[in-house]
C-alpha cells in the first residue's frame, strides 16, 4: 500500500463580507488551526491590497494558498498602479483579475475561498465572493461568508441582511419585509454576533475577530475584537 502525499490541508477559520450602500465590511477570525491544534491565535485573514487602496481581500481555507493568493493580488494591484500612471485598479477589474488567477490554477487549484470588497468610482460598495476555481458573480452581492463556519453564518446573514423569512407584521405573513441597505453600526453588530455565535458552535473559530471597514467617508479602518479562546 502506498500512502499518497496530500498537498492540501485545512487551516480552519471563517470570513464574512457585507456591503452597505457606501461602505463594505470584511471580517475574519484570527485562529489558525491544524486538526485539533491551534497553531496561532493571531493570524489574520483580511488583507488590504495596497497602502492607499480601497480594495480588501479576505481568504480562508488552505492557509498557504490563501496567503499566496493575497500576495498575488497585492502585487497585481501595486503593479497596475505603476503601469497605469499611479491610477488605482477599480474594484470590478480586481474582481475579474482574481477570477482569472483562480481559474488559471484550475488543474491544481488554490484551495482558498475568497471574498473581495471595495468601493467603485462613485464611492459605492462592491462585494464579490469566489469558490476555489474562480466562479463569481459580476453583479456582486450584498453579503457573503466562507470557511469552516460558513454553514452556520450564511443562514444567519440570509435572515439578518437579506431579511429572508421576515414578513411585515401587519400582513399576517403574506408580505415580505423589503430589503434595504443597513447602516454601519448595524452591520458591525451583525458581524460580531455572527462570529460570537460561530465561536460557540465551531471548534475552529475563535481567539480574535479582525473587522475591516472601507467607507467613502472614513476610508480604511481596522478593529480587533477578542473572541473566546476555548
Amino acid at each position: 500500500m502506498r500512502h499518497g502525499w496530500n498537498p492540501y490541508t485545512d487551516n480552519g477559520g471563517s470570513i464574512i463580507g457585507i456591503a452597505g450602500d457606501d461602505f463594505v465590511i470584511l471580517a475574519g477570525d484570527t485562529r489558525h488551526t491544524s486538526g485539533y491544534n491551534i497553531n496561532s491565535r493571531d493570524e489574520r485573514k483580511v488583507y488590504r491590497l495596497g497602502e492607499n487602496s480601497s480594495l480588501v481581500l479576505a481568504t480562508v481555507g488552505f492557509g498557504a494558498d490563501a496567503k499566496d493568493l493575497a500576495q498575488t493580488m497585492r502585487r497585481a494591484v501595486e503593479d497596475f498602479k505603476f503601469q497605469h500612471n499611479l491610477k488605482d485598479m477599480t474594484v470590478s477589474a480586481a474582481a475579474q483579475f482574481l477570477c482569472t488567477v483562480l481559474y488559471g490554477n484550475r488543474f491544481f487549484p488554490k484551495y482558498a475561498y475568497c471574498i473581495l470588497g471595495g468601493l467603485d468610482k462613485n464611492g459605492k460598495a462592491r462585494l464579490y465572493s469566489y469558490d476555489p476555481v474562480g466562479s463569481y458573480s459580476k453583479e456582486g452581492e450584498s453579503r457573503a461568508a466562507a470557511g469552516a463556519a460558513s454553514s452556520l453564518i450564511v443562514p444567519f446573514l440570509d435572515n439578518q441582511v437579506e431579511f429572508k423569512n421576515q414578513y411585515i407584521p401587519s400582513s399576517k405573513g403574506t408580505q415580505e419585509r423589503p430589503v434595504e441597505h443597513l447602516d454601519r453600526d448595524t452591520v458591525v453588530r451583525l458581524v460580531k454576533d455572527a462570529f460570537t455565535g460561530a465561536t460557540e458552535r465551531h471548534i475552529e473559530v475563535g481567539d480574535g475577530l479582525q473587522i475591516v471597514t472601507v467607507s467613502a467617508q472614513d476610508g480604511y479602518q481596522e478593529e480587533i475584537m477578542p473572541l473566546k479562546r476555548d
Binding site: 498537498p7 492540501y8 490541508t9 487551516n11 489558525h32 491544524s34 491544534n37 497553531n39 496561532s40 491565535r41 493571531d42 493570524e43 488552505f62 492557509g63 498557504a64 496567503k67 499566496d68
Partner: peptide, 18 residues
Amino acid sequence: LLGTTFSSPALASGFGAH
C-alpha cells in the same frame, strides 16, 4: 512542508505541538 505559515509567541513542532 505544505508551505503553511504562522507566527505565535510560543511554538513547537511535531509532538511538541501537543
